[in-house]
Design a protein around this nucleic acid. Structure first.
Lengths: 130, 130
DNA sequence: TTATGTGCAAAAGCTTTGCGTTCTA
DNA sequence: TAGAACGCAAAGCTTTTGCACATAA
């Protein structure tokens, strides 16, 4: 079978995602991880992201055409993308109630949902009102 | 200034998007448009999609890591992605009520929202129940 | 006519893969 | 010490750009 080893690279990448306030782009993960582990290669980042995704430890989120990654196991949540600074935040409240099995008009059986809100994050809303 | 001409290529691409039941991938647009206009080049498709997007006639939707395009002006709507056949449909009902200006816990000012539902489309729900 | 738009092919980005070396277990 | 994982560089894709020719106005 396939043995999966624990390496410094994997730990660092998992930690970077674990302490992020929201999903991160591959480039961001790469740069942050290099801060903890100079010499890290981008190929390792891609390989590790794929591995961790396969293991369910993290998962991809596509926003505005970019693929971001975030740690799993943070419960049901959604995202807020700031139209001003571009940062993406994790929201722990959910604006919809759609139990699995809900049947939508037209006969669409809902199993899951994804919501993204766009607007001004607290920082941007405070500094440039109006 | 910049004059924008009407060409057969642009008409065909706009028509393809206009009659689609949901957003399409660049490759799909390319193939469908070639059916109407053999010889069409992929570069023209990309250029036209960018042009139409800039004009607001169409807009990109990113789903499952892929960038799809759909015609604008179809009113407020969302998408349903079938977990079985992979097709994406347009839904004309909205499961959330978030007037622009709604302030979310944490101080996030909501200006817009995007919802994607995942599950079984009518065709797939009917043919393989359980 | 003229300069916008097109197709082709080269270039540019991003992601994956091959391979010799390093390091976990 | 065996083979999983790494870093580097080459290869693959998708998207963009350069250019000469075609075409809308």
């Amino acid at each position: 079978m396939t043995a999966t080893r624990s390496t410094r690279q994997r730990d660092v990448i998992a930690q970077v995602l674990g302490r992020a306030p929201g999903p991160l782009a591959v480039t961001e993960i790469f740069e942050l991880a290099q801060g903890d582990l100079p010499g890290l290669g981008i190929a390792t980042v891609y390989r590790t992201l794929k591995l961790l995704t396969g293991q369910g430890q993290i998962h991809p989120v596509t926003l505005d055409g970019e693929t971001l990654y975030e740690a799993s196991g943070k419960g049901h949540h959604h995202h807020f993308s700031c139209n001003h600074c571009g940062r993406v935040f994790t929201l722990h409240t959910c604006p919809v109630t759609l139990p699995s099995g809900t049947v939508y008009p037209g006969g669409f059986v809902v199993e899951a949902h994804e919501v993204t809100l766009y607007g001004q994050c607290p920082d941007c809303a405070g500094s440039q009102p109006g």
